[in-house]
Simulated assay, not measured.
Amino acid sequence: MAAETSPFVTYELKGAVAHIGLNRPEKRNAMNDRFVDMLAGAIARAENEAKAAVLFGHGDHFCAGLDLAEHVEKTPFEGVRGSRRWHAVTAGMQHGTIPWVSALHGGVIGGGMELAAATHIRVSDRSAFFALPEGQRGIFVGGGGSVRIARLLGVARMSDMMLTGRVISPDEAERWNLVQYVVETGVARDKAHALAAIMATNAEISNYAIINALPRIQDMAKEDGLFVESFIASFTATSPEAEERLRAFLDKRVARIKPPE
């Protein structure tokens, strides 16, 4: 399917993988309320017609975060409503029905980090840099970062970035668990697509369980998590698709796992 362009967001279906592009390059893809609403529509479309999705940024940067020119004009309650809208939209990715991979390059700043943290796998190229400058701006994260980013980095490292304005490199981001892959400049989207294409071949019920059960189990007490795990494991393993895939493995119709090269 050819790419479709609307203000702020592009959409393209490549096989079973939807590609959603942040498309406000003149503002480093900074997001305002209209941008968030258009992103919500693209996410809903991908959920309906794709089996995996890639989120990327057009231009020189992934996303510089919140459009501060719009934000500074809001009342406190308007700010709350905007934040809760971000939460709802990003939850559509994190707790949806398909896996999401973000391709990161250039600035991944503030709300851009929050947006990337809502995807399930993050691929960074070597041009990327990561920052949370909220302390210097006199604001606080409002797009889910206090939950998602803190769970990835840990509170101490996130506090460091917010309090000092520290900017980290892709290699630091990988060591800190913010990103899972680091690739050469210019190929993050290709790598993200390759990963998403693999995910698209998984059993849909397994993908759903992985992206929805794992983060919830992490929030549970140990024994509660193990109890829930038993039900999820039993439910997925007894599905018709699981039976066919397991029989294919037992009949040696699929390749066995090999050591990495």
Score class of each variant (00 low, 15 high):
113 M>A: 08
133 P>C: 05
177 N>P: 04
143 G>A: 04
129 F>K: 00
119 T>L: 00
205 I>P: 13
191 K>C: 14
113 M>R: 13
122 R>Y: 14
208 Y>L: 09
136 Q>E: 09
172 E>P: 02
170 P>Q: 03
180 Q>L: 03
194 A>W: 03
139 I>G: 00
212 N>M: 00
154 G>M: 06
164 T>K: 00
170 P>F: 13
123 V>Q: 04
140 F>G: 03
128 A>S: 06
198 I>S: 02
166 R>G: 01
147 V>P: 06
189 R>F: 01
142 G>Q: 14
192 A>D: 15
129 F>Q: 02
185 T>P: 03
126 R>P: 05
168 I>M: 04
137 R>V: 03
210 I>S: 06
191 K>H: 15
186 G>Q: 08
157 R>Q: 13
148 R>Q: 05
116 A>Y: 06
148 R>S: 00
141 V>M: 02
208 Y>N: 05
111 G>L: 01
159 S>K: 09
164 T>C: 04
158 M>Y: 11
135 G>Y: 13
109 I>D: 10
170 P>M: 06
177 N>I: 09
194 A>Y: 08
133 P>H: 12
112 G>H: 09
133 P>S: 03
134 E>Y: 14
139 I>S: 10
193 H>Q: 09
143 G>E: 06
116 A>G: 04
110 G>R: 08
164 T>H: 07
113 M>I: 13
195 L>S: 03
125 D>M: 02
144 G>P: 01
